[in-house]
Design a protein around this nucleic acid. Sequence first.
DNA 1: AGCCAGGCGGTCA
DNA 2: TGACCGCATGGC
Length: 283
Amino acid sequence: MHSFSTADLNLDHTLDCGQVFRWEREGDRWVGVVNGEVVRAWQDSVSMEVLIDSNLPRDFFVDYFRLDDDLPYILDSIEKDRYIHEAIERYRGLRIIRQEPWECLVSYMLATASSIPTIKKRISLLSRMFGVEIEPGFYSFPDAGTLAHADVSDLCECKLGFRTGRIQKVAQMVSGGELCLDELFDMDYHLARKRLMEIEGVGEKVADCVLLFSFEKLDSFPVDTHVRQFVERYYADDGYFWGKLDTHKIGEWGRRYFGEFCGYAQEYLYYHRRIEQKRSNVT
DNA sequence: AGCCAGGCGGTCA
DNA sequence: TGACCGCATGGC
């Protein structure tokens, strides 16, 4: 059992914000599959102490939750206006998670034009079909070699739709050594992005997510439909843009406007927008 | 029932 | 380049 007392980690926001797809809430606890292990985590609502039940060592979670990031400093650096100010005020303690690159790449390739519950279902099916059963009902994420040699009819049962062929291809690239993900750590944002976008099924948005969540590129600003809508609704009206607005331009703006930690800004705005939209659907 | 979801790749002007 | 389209699937 591990315990973390930092005031700068909010477990609910961090696990619910949509960056990871392998965590579920079970009562007052979170249960997830991380690094081939089942992990259970919860947070005391008064002391804010985070408790973690896992076979993985304590240091793993320092890394996983990016407790090496100076969150107060980062949030201060991105707090440029009243919109991001409000998001930070509400969701302070949301931290970007360091994800395993292969799982992250496949997950976001599966995320195109899909809602989060659908993405979670696909990854769950894929793990159940091709992963290793760690505990009853819990399966590890399948490695590239397994997916590269997967039976096509088995793969089709995972309901990946038009993404099936892309997953098969990227698995073959990685397991065959044609694509070495670790090399992306040493590249800067732009070069690593260019390299990722050579993969079929990886455009600007998917590349930016993988760079942000796995390859230490906190200067990445993924523009999905929610972020685009938020920027169009608020920033565009305030005169931050002229000319035509597209996702590419919004990305360039976000990186320049929020600076070297724009990835954190993106995540706060994204979560903020999703929560707001969920609320407006209810009413 | 029809629109949209953490988009991408292709085409056509 | 800019606008549009098809792609599978599921949630709401």
